[in-house]
Simulated assay, not measured.
Amino acid sequence: MAKAYASAVIDAPIETVWKIIRDFNGLPKWHSAIARSEIEDGLSSHAVGCIRSFYLQDGAHVREQLLALSDNEHSLSYNFVKPAFPVTNYEAFIRLIAITDGGRTFAEWGATFDEAPEDAGKYVEIVSTHVFAAGLKDLQAHLAG
């Protein structure tokens, strides 16, 4: 099983960061790779089980289902319904932890998934760097203003 991961210190209090992250339909507001998004079937963007249908800037279509959302833990998890790349058993999480010194937030974004043998390691780098790390950098920029 492959593991992708990125983390960052965000210069904003956890409540501010969580308000943005918990909106499962909010990716286009802060992640530069996402062109547009909608929650299917008129469900709320924080309803466990809802599916976000979104388009990347290159036109690729992705669907993901919210598996868990915890306001107490400042975390959420989701999986692919229609993947962005050829992997299986994809499950991702975003988790926030308050940094009490300075009112900042530690953010981590990770996923586990299976790759085809010929792709071993290929999507770990892509997801870790171009999705998760880039997204956390975009989030920091969004919060900075």
Rank of each mutant, 00 (worst) to 15 (best):
V131M: 09
S75R: 07
I97P: 01
A134F: 08
V131F: 13
E118T: 14
S77M: 04
F85Q: 10
H130G: 07
E115G: 02
I99A: 06
E115L: 03
V81Y: 01
S77Y: 05
E73V: 13
S77R: 04
V87Q: 01
W109M: 06
K82M: 13
Y90P: 00
F132K: 00
E73K: 11
S128N: 03
D119L: 05
E108L: 08
F93S: 14
F80H: 06
S128C: 01
I126H: 04
E125S: 12
I99K: 10
K82H: 12
A84V: 13
A107E: 03
W109D: 00
I94G: 00
T105I: 11
V127Y: 05
Y90F: 11
T100Q: 11
P86I: 15
E73D: 15
G103M: 12
I126L: 14
E108N: 04
G102Q: 07
R104M: 14
K122L: 14
T112P: 03
D119A: 10
L96C: 12
Y123F: 15
I94E: 03
L76V: 09
Y78A: 01
F113Y: 04
N72S: 14
R95D: 08
H130P: 02
E125G: 08
I126S: 05
S128M: 01
F85G: 06
E73Q: 14
I94C: 06
A134R: 12
G103L: 12
K122G: 07
T88H: 05
K82D: 15
T112Q: 09
T129F: 03
I126P: 03
R104I: 14
H130R: 09
A116R: 11
A98L: 08
E118G: 05
T105C: 09
W109V: 05
D119F: 06
A107D: 04
E115N: 02
D114P: 07
V87I: 15
Y90N: 01
Y78W: 08
A98P: 05
R95F: 07
Y123S: 07
V124P: 08
E108T: 04
A116S: 13
A107K: 00
G110Y: 05
A120Q: 12
A107Q: 02
H74S: 06
N72L: 12
F106Q: 13
E91L: 11
A134H: 11
G102A: 09
V124C: 06
E125I: 10
G121Q: 08
L96H: 01
F80I: 03
R95M: 11
A133G: 06
V81C: 05
D101Y: 06
H130Y: 12
V124H: 03
T129M: 08
V131L: 13
G121T: 00
G103Q: 10
